[in-house]
Nucleic acid binder design. Structure first.
Lengths: 93, 93
DNA sequence: CGGGCTTACGGTGTGCGTAAATATC
DNA sequence: GATATTTACGCACACCGTAAGCCCG
């Protein structure tokens, strides 16, 4: 269960395609494919339904997607918090 | 901003020492030291106050700690969700 | 001396990119 | 032929463990 895997899932859902997710994540398609595949392999569930025109989350994928969104969002906030701390830190003489 | 770094921060705060965190995380002390150091280096803030008898989170460390706890907790829930999906998935003929 | 943190060094594993293959329209 | 996904291969980076050093009681 790695972050980049959850991020991949989130972006795939957001764009409706692995290609689009790859663009957003600034990585190549195979990287995203492997990320979700590892995730599916890890939990033993098909997270995406592969269609010729793209992909759609399965019910299980959608369920995990909600969790993934929260994790990514909170991680984002953590990064923001660290930046804020960086701003107020210099005053801690 | 990696998960294991946040996890390290959480466990350090929980145990009050890098040594204790290492034990909980089933890794060695240097690994934990480097994890928090990388985190500090990344956000440019001293997260821990090093004392001879152990370490104590700084104000900035405490702030990030709250976020870190949330991230770790949510990630935990994500893993649990995947297990649940695994349980209900086989019925999706 | 003992306990705890840090630094340096080497190995191993993982994630990424490139290249090639398959399927649909 | 174009688009989208998947698989295979090789590489670079990051994490971890071991070993050695430093500080304080």
């Amino acid at each position: 269960m790695k972050i980049h895997q959850l991020r991949a899932l989130v972006e795939i859902a957001a764009t409706g395609s692995i290609n689009g997710a790859a663009r957003r994540l600034h990585v190549t398609q195979p990287a995203v494919t492997k990320a979700v595949r590892d995730l599916e392999d890890e939990c033993g569930v098909r997270l995406l339904e592969r269609n010729p025109w793209g992909v759609v989350p399965t019910a299980e994928g959608a369920a995990l997607l909600q969790r993934a969104r929260t994790v990514v969002r909170e991680l984002e906030r953590a990064g923001k918090t660290s930046r804020t701390s960086r701003a107020i830190a210099p005053a801690s003489s």
